[in-house]
Design a protein around this nucleic acid. Structure first.
Lengths: 180, 180
DNA sequence: CAAGGACATGTACCTTAGGACATGTCCGAG
DNA sequence: CTCGGACATGTCCTAAGGTACATGTCCTTG
């Protein structure tokens, strides 16, 4: 139910179209919570059916503006304060690390370098958001303060993985190339 | 296809039953790659159909031992070296952080404290694995060396999130309790 | 030997995710 | 004015994840 509440949360900042929401999701949360537009449009339809959001339809196929209702706002707040966090992660990179011993040393070194570079770049991306916020580019309203906190999480998380990939290059690991 | 290759990788360490594999997955990878037993049994069936693993069936409902075939071993190696890492994460905790401004300050503080405690505990869990490995509890074969690297990732990742949750408590955040 | 719990495997069903494809609008450049 | 590209919304289908339920074995303890 995270997509559902994520959409409600973004709509709590103000009205938006499905397209806007897809963009916001991808831009800010793309690396930590993927959401494709078909899912988003489908979920918006259900939210409207449940009375948690309302639509200003322009036409059959034109742009639509969704607005959160008081019930919808109450529902996000309930989710945030009264439901447990689902701590389940899905990190293919860590899954792969269990099998590093199956990789030829050269491939492993290249792999870890590429991983480190990727995570450094991701951390920098969030650093950019944090810097823009600190400069005051987006003003000072509560939503942008929350984005600063989210960006900090993105920085720390990805930097930790970048550091790990660097460290792993120096860690001794006997690989096993002949499938013994 | 990560579950598929994860199972192959674990079987590369030696023969095991579906039950064993479910346990290994849950124990070591539970927090970073969930896998329920129904999926595991189903996937083992497909892997056997594809000739990547072989079965020593005891009976219709008894314990089965799965063994990786040379084709299976080649397939894990191909996956590890020739396919791109899927960096998609799914972290509900970070999704929620974007909406912290919707939470009453007291609830938010409690929430962050609980989060920090959870991540500290998770980091400690991986520290335990790392310490056991460093003491030599599991010997010195390649698979356990890889587990040391995986454990290090678990430590750094969860510690980063624990530190973040601590930090976030001190970050100024004007919350918005009246839904303006 | 009977009962209970860990071990062990599976089916059925529902939800969620994700890729492929279809359609139409609106606007600016040529 | 027409063509292309960004904007915008959606359907369809397949794959993957996850819960509930069903079944049977094996070993230990009373």
């Amino acid at each position: 139910m995270s997509l559902r509440h994520g959409l409600l949360g973004l709509l709590a900042e103000g009205p938006a179209s499905g397209y806007d929401l897809a963009g916001r999701f991808q831009e800010l949360l793309g690396t930590v919570w993927p959401a494709q537009h078909p899912k988003i449009y489908a979920e918006l339809g259900k939210l409207a059916d449940d009375g948690l959001i309302e639509v200003d339809s322009v036409g059959a196929r034109g742009r639509k503006a969704y607005r959160i209702t008081p019930e919808g706002l109450a529902e996000v707040r309930r989710w945030l304060t009264a439901t447990d966090v689902d701590h389940t992660m899905r990190l293919q990179a860590l899954l792969r690390s269990v099998f590093f011993w199956l990789m030829p040393p050269d491939d492993l070194r290249r792999h870890l370098q590429a991983e480190a570079a990727y995570y450094r770049q991701a951390a920098d991306f969030y650093r950019g958001i944090a810097a823009a916020k600190d400069r005051g580019d987006y003003g000072d309203s509560p939503p942008t303060q929350a984005i600063r906190i989210a960006a900090e999480a993105g920085i720390r998380l990805h930097q930790a993985l970048a550091d790990w990939a660097e460290w792993a290059q120096t860690a001794p690991l006997t690989t096993d190339e002949d499938g013994s």
